Structures are given as structure tokens and as C-alpha cells.
Simulated scan of single mutants.
Amino acid sequence: MKSNNIELEPGMERKIKISFAVFFGFIICVIIIYQYFYGEENVKKQLLHIENHSRVIDIYNNQKEHNFLFVKYSNGRKKILEFDYKIGDSISKNKGDSIEYIFRNGKIIENNLFDEYRRNSGKN
């Protein structure tokens, strides 16, 4: 009866491991280079795509997400708290605009999402 085992030449297993390591290293380098040149532009496109017209109804620690603060909107959406919202704030953000308007106690607070992104990412 024949055995289906593949026998490699001495040292071949090591060459295969090195080849895989180089291949995955190359993939990681390509991703890093892509993010360096196109990452900020992609984030800006995503921020411009957002549309939100709702009210903040709850702010809570999400135990399933390492106790990060989450905000719950009147439209049912829940997401991580990225701005200092207060319960009762009305949020208005139109698609294509980088400014989010927060209506709080008769005042209008302008939140420029591009500025928030730069501040949080350390890019000035």
C-alpha cells in the first residue's frame, strides 16, 4: 500500500515558510502604503456620505464592547460616542456636508467632522 505523505527535500520546509512570510509581509506593506496615500481621502468620503437627522435618547456603557460609551439615537441606531453629545440633543447632518449641527437648549453647535477626524487621528 502506498503512503500519501509528501516528502520534502532537506531545507525545503524552511524555504516554504520563508516564502509565506515574505508574501504576507508584502501584502501588509501594500496595505500600509495604500492607507498612507489614500486612507484620509477614503475617510473623508465616508464622512460626507453620512446622513443623520435624529435625537440622542441614551448614552450608555456597552459591556459587549469593552464598556465603551455608546449613543442611542431616536431612529434606533446605536454607535460609539464620538462627540460630547448630551441626552436630548437633536442631530442634523446632511449627506455631502462635513458639518453636523447639534441643537441643545436653544443653541446650535457646529461639529466639523473633518476637524474631529484630524484631531482624533493626530493629523494636523
Rank of each mutant, 00 (worst) to 15 (best):
R118L: 07
E7S: 12
Y101E: 10
E7H: 12
F23C: 13
Y38K: 10
D115Q: 06
N94L: 10
N67Y: 15
L48N: 10
N124S: 04
R119S: 07
K79S: 13
I59T: 01
R119N: 08
N62L: 01
F103T: 01
I27V: 15
K78D: 09
R119Y: 12
R77Y: 14
K15Y: 01
N67A: 04
I31L: 15
K64F: 08
K44C: 06
E65M: 13
I16F: 14
I109V: 09
V22N: 06
F24V: 10
S98E: 07
L47D: 05
I109R: 04
E41I: 05
H49Y: 11
G106V: 08
G88K: 12
R104L: 06
E110F: 02
A21F: 13
N61K: 14
E65S: 04
F23L: 15
I108Y: 05
G25A: 05
D97N: 12
Y101V: 04
L8E: 04
R118G: 03
E13F: 03
K15Q: 06
D115C: 02
A21I: 10
Y34P: 00
Y73W: 15
I27K: 14
I59D: 00
R14H: 09
Y36K: 09
G11Y: 04
G96F: 03
E7T: 15
K45H: 11
K93F: 01
K79C: 07
N111Y: 08
R118K: 13
N52Y: 01
Y73F: 14
M1I: 14
Y73L: 04
E65L: 03
G122S: 02
N5P: 03
I99Q: 07
G106C: 08
K107C: 02
K17C: 10
M1D: 10
R14T: 13
I27R: 10
K79P: 00
E116H: 13
N105W: 03
N61D: 14
I87L: 11
L47W: 09
C29S: 15
F70V: 01
N105P: 02
G11E: 09
K17E: 15
K64I: 00
K44S: 06
R118D: 01
L69H: 06
L8N: 08
